[in-house]
Design a protein around this nucleic acid. Structure first.
Lengths: 191, 191
DNA sequence: GTCTATATATAGATAGAC
DNA sequence: GTCTATCTATATATAGAC
């Protein structure tokens, strides 16, 4: 049995993912969650307040999932490949990345913060992994961990865009395979 | 002097870019374009009809700009670098890629088609360039033109997402530099 | 072609009873 | 805590006069 606020947050997460912030109405949240209007406004100040709770949770979940992989065993290449290939619901897009398209989210500093932090944390974490990889001789010394980390995250986010445009997972898979091949070709052993 | 339909289309293009389809109202189009309600509905059937004209034009413009670069002089690497580095308005995002986040656009086959075609054309064109590059010995024979082309387009689209999340062009620039470095490192001469 | 009037539904809440 | 009533503004048009 989940509590009323809990059901509201989870429903809002779903709707934000499917329809974005502008496309998600309080009424839709109430109907899908089965929570009444008065009840919703009792627990949350309004749509922005509820959205903040939902976005914050999605951001934390995203980072937790990623960290479980990054902190696990394997070479830098293996962990990054696991990150890029472990994505589900490719056609639904990224629950955090999609929000960057929403002017109301980007225009509200409170709503924007979790989005910003998610990506800055991810980029820094992957840069660290790549740096370790270079230090261990997994990649050539010429590989720049910082720019390459942004490339890796961008491929993931752009892969979602291409998949949704094509209504097919294929371009996502291609983009991921392409960047992993490029990383593999950068290995000193391949030189 | 631009005609009334012309002003409507251009204004709709701007608003779709800034606010997306769901976030763009007929009233907003009328106010920004200075065209009255009756006049708008005289020239277009409604919001979807006007959006189709706007999206179609943006898609064509996008491909025309890209083709001007791809068909120009230079090595494959140079032309792809020119494509990735020639982007303006990074913080505004991609006028076509952003639409993939909009459920109403993706749910309408007519509105979706130009988006789909833009990316499938781009990916195919870049795959062709990369294939020529491999044939000329610009890259190692191990480079797969098709997957790498999807990677290149994904980096661009994902770069927009990262830039908007950070409210800074920096991660976009990093992502682009990162993938260009990886491509350069794949050159046979570097092996 | 353009304008004003009118219309229905939804967005996003607030007020107060229970 | 939850429910129903009410409210103002906007979304998305249609109708008919000029």
């Amino acid at each position: 049995m989940s509590s009323t606020p809990e059901r509201l947050i989870e429903t809002t997460r779903e709707l934000l993912w499917e329809r974005g912030y502008v496309g998600t109405s309080p009424k839709a949240i109430q109907q899908r969650s089965g929570v009444g209007q008065g009840s919703m406004y009792h627990h949350f100040d309004g749509k922005p307040d509820l959205a903040l709770a939902a976005i914050t949770r999605s951001a934390e979940e995203r980072l937790t999932t990623a960290e479980a992989l990054f902190g696990g065993p394997g070479t830098a290449t293996e962990r990054i490949a696991g990150y890029l290939r472990g994505e589900r619901d490719v056609l639904k897009g990224c629950p955090i990345g999609g929000l960057t398209q929403d002017p109301e989210v980007m225009g509200d500093p409170a709503l924007r913060r979790p989005v910003e932090e998610t990506f800055s944390t991810l980029r820094a974490r992957i840069a660290g992994l790549l740096g370790e990889g270079v230090a261990r001789g997994e990649f050539g010394a010429g590989l720049d961990p910082v720019t390459t980390a942004s490339t890796v995250v961008a491929v993931l986010q752009g892969g979602y865009v291409l998949a949704r445009a094509a209504d097919s997972v294929e371009p996502f898979t291609e983009a991921v395979d392409g960047v992993l091949d490029l990383l593999a070709a950068h290995a000193p052993a391949a030189k």
